[in-house]
Each structure stands twice: as structure tokens, then as C-alpha cells.
């Protein structure tokens, strides 16, 4: 357990050692604000809640989280530092966990920096802060899901661009699998239990449930197990590389 810490620390400091962290946070906050005010027409809604803010999170994460995760392993493979990392007395799962937690913590920092939105609605009206807190937690877990996918796919290549693009595609599939558009097509060719299984895998469906202010244990378990599944594949990919 304690071997996770050095990897976590190195990775998190690594984000801030380059302009990447600052560029990312600026773009993250700008995209969050722009989508809320222009696409979501925040003011026209005239309701003191953050529904229109959280509405766009899955779509923004779709691009932002793979951008954050793409370097995790691909860069190590490209520069050869993976040979250092894999010959240190650290279990592969601890390295995977350390890197993932660093990326997740970084996304948490970026998410926390959207706090002016929360202050704004509290000035404008009397929102249900419980719902807002639940939405933030839900959003954070969803970011973790996207990051786990991105981390795993980053370990499958030594090219960051490939990791980025493939991650977006996979994240997209996980996002849209609950949309009526997808489900109607699926319904035409697949039996109902399979269709509802596909729907239940959707980030959108899960996130909407949490964003309504109800933290259902099942939704949390869904995101947690999804994260562990992808990180498990991530570890397996590294062990496979060791076998050559």
C-alpha cells in the first residue's frame, strides 16, 4: 500500500511540472462555463440549481479525461522510463493505482475549482445544496470511470495520440449506450435483457440518477467496479508486456 504513494506523488507533481496542468485547468473551467451559459442557457432557466451545469459534464469529460490519461503509460513506454518503474520493487497494481489516483486527484482539483458556480447559485437563490453535493460526487466518480478507461488504453500503446483517440471512442460508447437513439437500434436486433444491460452500462443513465440528488449505492458500486475492471485490465496489459 505504501508503495502507491511515491508513484502517486511523482505523477501528480509531474502534471504541475509542465504547463499541461495549467492549460488543462483553464480549458476545463472555460469549457464548463461556456457550456453552462451558452449551451445550457443558465440565466434563461431562472432556476437556482446547477442542473444545467452538470448536464454537460459527461460530454466534456469525454474529451478532457482522455487528454488527462493519455500520457500515463504511453509516455513511459515512449521514453523508456517504464523500464525504471517496472524494475523498482513496486507491484504493478500499485503503480497502476498510483498513476490513476494522481490523475483522478487532478481531475478533482479541476472540478473543485468550479466552486464559483456553486457560490453564484447560492447568491442568486436558494438551491438544494444536498443535490449539488451529490452531483459533484457523481461527477467525480464519472471522471474516475473515464480516467480508468484512458489509463488502461494508454498502457496498450506507446503513442499518446492513439491512446487519446481510442479512449475517446471507447468513452463515447460507454456514454451513449443509454441514449434512446442507441437503445432503439439495439432493440431491433437484440433481446430485451441485453438491451437493458447495455442501458445500465451507460454513464449518462447512472450520472443522471446521481445528479438528481439521490446517491444510490448501486450507482456508486457501478462506477467503482467499472474503475477496478479497467485498472485490472491495465495491470494485465503491463504483465503481458513483461512476458514479452
Amino acid at each position: 500500500m505504501m508503495r502507491i504513494w511515491p508513484v502517486f506523488r511523482r505523477e501528480l507533481v509531474g502534471y504541475f511540472a509542465t504547463p499541461l496542468a495549467y492549460v488543462f485547468i483553464v480549458i476545463f473551467l472555460f469549457a464548463m462555463g461556456a457550456s453552462t451559459f451558452y449551451l445550457g442557457n443558465f440565466y434563461e432557466g431562472r432556476t437556482a440549481n446547477l442542473e444545467r451545469f452538470f448536464l454537460f459534464h459527461p460530454w466534456l469529460y469525454l474529451f478532457l479525461m482522455p487528454a488527462l490519461a493519455m500520457r500515463l503509460w504511453a509516455e513511459e513506454k515512449k521514453t523508456g522510463t517504464i523500464e525504471i518503474l517496472m524494475t523498482l520493487p513496486i507491484p504493478a497494481w500499485a503503480s497502476v493505482m498510483g498513476k490513476f489516483l494522481a490523475a483522478w486527484a487532478f481531475s478533482g482539483i479541476a472540478l473543485a475549482l468550479t466552486f464559483p458556480m456553486w457560490i453564484t447559485v447560492n447568491i442568486l437563490g436558494e438551491p438544494d445544496n444536498g443535490v449539488i453535493l451529490a452531483s459533484y460526487i457523481g461527477s467525480f466518480f464519472m471522471a474516475g470511470g473515464y480516467l480508468a478507461i484512458g489509463s488502461c488504453l494508454s498502457a496498450a500503446t506507446n503513442n499518446q495520440v492513439i491512446a487519446f483517440v481510442v479512449s475517446i471512442v471507447v468513452c463515447f460508447l460507454f456514454t451513449v449506450s443509454g441514449l434512446p437513439l442507441v437503445l432503439q437500434v439495439a432493440q431491433a436486433v437484440l433481446p430485451t435483457p441485453v438491451v437493458s444491460a447495455i442501458a445500465s452500462f451507460s454513464f449518462l443513465t447512472r450520472f443522471e440518477a446521481i445528479a438528481e440528488g439521490v446517491i444510490d449505492l448501486r450507482d456508486v458500486i457501478y462506477f467503482a467496479s467499472l474503475i477496478l475492471l479497467w485498472l485490472g485490465i491495465n495491470v494485465a496489459l503491463l504483465e503481458r508486456a513483461r512476458a514479452g
Binding site: R10, V13, G14, A17, T18, T79, G80, T81, E83, I84
Partner: peptide
Amino acid sequence: GAPAYGDM
């Protein structure tokens, strides 16, 4: 090739 983390 003595790889190392360049940003550190």
C-alpha cells in the same frame, strides 16, 4: 540509454 523522467 539511462532513461529518466525529464520533467523532474
